[in-house]
Design a protein around this nucleic acid. Structure first.
Lengths: 339, 339
DNA sequence: GCCCTTCTTTGGACCGTTCCAGAACCTTCC
DNA sequence: GGAAGGTTCTGGAACGGTCCAAAGAAGGGC
């Protein structure tokens, strides 16, 4: 019992398979009664076109590959959502590969995507294997989203302005009166940019001397450890700006464990405005990075690039917005450290 | 500049395309020197087989469709991870569709998956449109994972034993000395089962009279509101067992806001052991639902079912495990309510 | 009624693989 | 030396669509 083919439909409707194809692709050049007959046959047989046959013939798959760093990061999921909705509107579907997982399995993702002949590729976030993106970009229209590297010749970049976001966060803390501010740094180019924004603002305010940077990673654990180290230092900061919300939550735990009240004794800013930051119990001041919007814009870039693969790569940055919640406040005025 | 085809490889290697096909599929019946020539040609041309052409000819896609309720729920992501790793090992790739998103877009997911002729389907969690699963299951080998409905004739079910998990949580609270225990109920069959487990244990301990159930949903907001209602009641509970970790975190916020200390004034148990529960700042006692394991088992079931589509559907339940963390403790002995 | 034009409809080549029947080539054995 | 039996290789027919050139039908003008 094989699924019906276009020929079965044609036979049932008493027309040629070419006409069925015409009807299904919405041609105007078909007489209404034939169109009805075809559609009725399609309905009766429960016919669905075979995507593989269609791709083979059309030489395109209407599928976009998405290379994701980590599905567990809520911000990426939000971006993905924006991506999907925009691509879907253009009749493209999305094929997802989790870079971390596939790397663990030893698969080269570009292989899968080239075999499938996807029409385009979106690389989301800092990927474990940037060389793979390079290889893929040489064959496929490619857009990088959520990070600003790798920079390649015919590849667009859509990302949040991380340096600006870091500036917003840092200026917010300085505006509250903080002087000793620490940054928990992340990895990759995104980490570098946020760190740079932080350092620039501190320098502009003549606070380079009281700026501390501690390397963390993208996890809660990393944020926790970095904060423990920061708070153990002799001249300890009154505020911490964390690379992302996860690290911020780790910082929150560390502060609590050391008996410091947030925001009374320690102010805290995260990044990404994920649902974590919005949990009432955490209520983290953070920087909104507009994941959904970035996803949509990346999708539009890819559509343009598929239409014209040779056009030069562009960089589009979206401006992040500070989201003030419950973890930031002025430092204690009585604190001898703030003199 | 089209990508090279198997014929290009054949020509370059000086053999027929059939032989190239043989080599690439790992046949033993090929003389070593020819094999080398073919592999060299493949390498030189950068040849990658066309998946669409292969599927068309083989009449299978080596692709499994995954229908997911909500990618934002970390538990599903964990399950997906287990699924992926097992399917990958069998040479199958995974095509992901987020049910919530696609429903919003008004797409019938079964359409996409039937057009792609996926080899099988995994429906994860309580889906927004159970009828779609029914339709798909009539055409495709199908496995339901993470929930116990819909029950269909030739469909396997792999899920956690939610009733048992709820029993563990409730017994833990009773064992600590709690008598007035509330449950924040979830939706769908999973919600019903967890609620049933809770109620059964309360009944067995003669505590039906002091058991409260408040309807929540799967979100933090729902958990928060339900808890506010519970704690506003005259005879308020000393412990809350929440449908999942998200709702549990909402409960945590509500308790805090009302000036109750956790676990001193109120004990709290979540469900799923997602990374949320593991955040040090939350450190939620919860029930581990082994998402990764369920994913792997679901994958294996699907492989069996693809091999023999007619075999009767089986139900496999995994036993959840209580994970005691920081949000549960004995009730205050002095509390007049606990007499 | 006939020729010309415009709409509709159709047959068949093609997309890039797999798979099968059988051809070609080797050994081995009598 | 030739039949038998194995191995290795090949041509061509699928697979299920799209697309194009051309055939057929319908309408219009004289």
């Amino acid at each position: 019992m094989r699924p019906p083919t276009i020929r079965d439909v044609a036979e049932r409707a008493g027309v040629s398979k070419s006409l069925v194809s015409l009807v299904l692709r919405g041609s105007e050049q078909v007489r209404p009664e034939k169109r009805r007959a075809v559609l009725a046959a399609v309905e009766e047989l429960g016919y669905r076109p075979n995507a593989a046959a269609r791709s083979l013939s059309e030489r395109r798959t209407r599928t976009v590959g998405v290379l994701l760093n980590d599905l567990r990061n809520p911000w990426f999921v939000e971006l993905l959502d924006g991506l999907n909705s925009e691509l879907y509107a253009s009749g493209l579907r999305t094929l997802l590969a989790d870079g971390r997982l596939n790397r663990r399995l030893g698969e080269d993702l570009t292989h899968t995507f080239t075999e499938l002949r996807v029409d385009g590729l979106i690389a989301v976030g800092t990927l474990p294997d940037p060389a793979a993106v390079r290889t893929a970009a040489a064959r496929l229209p490619t857009v990088v989203a959520g990070t600003r590297e790798p920079v390649l010749s015919a590849v667009d970049i859509v990302a949040g302005d991380d340096e600006l976001g870091a500036r917003l966060a840092t200026e917010h803390l300085i505006g509250l009166g903080h002087r000793h501010i620490a940054h928990i740094a992340g990895q990759g180019s995104v980490g570098t940019l946020r760190r740079r924004g932080f350092e620039a603002v501190m320098r502009e305010h003549g606070l380079s001397g009281s700026a501390a940077v501690e390397q963390g990673d993208l996890t809660e654990e990393g944020g926790y450890r970095a904060t423990v180290r920061l708070l153990a230092a002799p001249h300890r900061p009154t505020a911490v700006f964390a690379f992302n919300d996860m690290a911020g939550v780790g910082a929150l735990s560390a502060a609590e464990e050391l008996g410091l009240r947030v925001p009374g004794d320690l102010s805290l800013v995260g990044y990404d405005n994920t649902y974590l930051a919005r949990l009432r119990h955490l209520w983290l001041t953070t920087v909104d990075n507009a994941g959904h919007d970035i996803g949509r814009r990346a999708a539009r870039r890819l559509l343009d690039r598929i239409a014209d693969p040779a056009r030069p790569g562009e960089v589009a940055l979206t401006a992040p917005v500070l989201e003030v919640r419950g973890t930031t406040a002025p430092p204690r005025p009585s604190d001898p450290r703030e003199s």
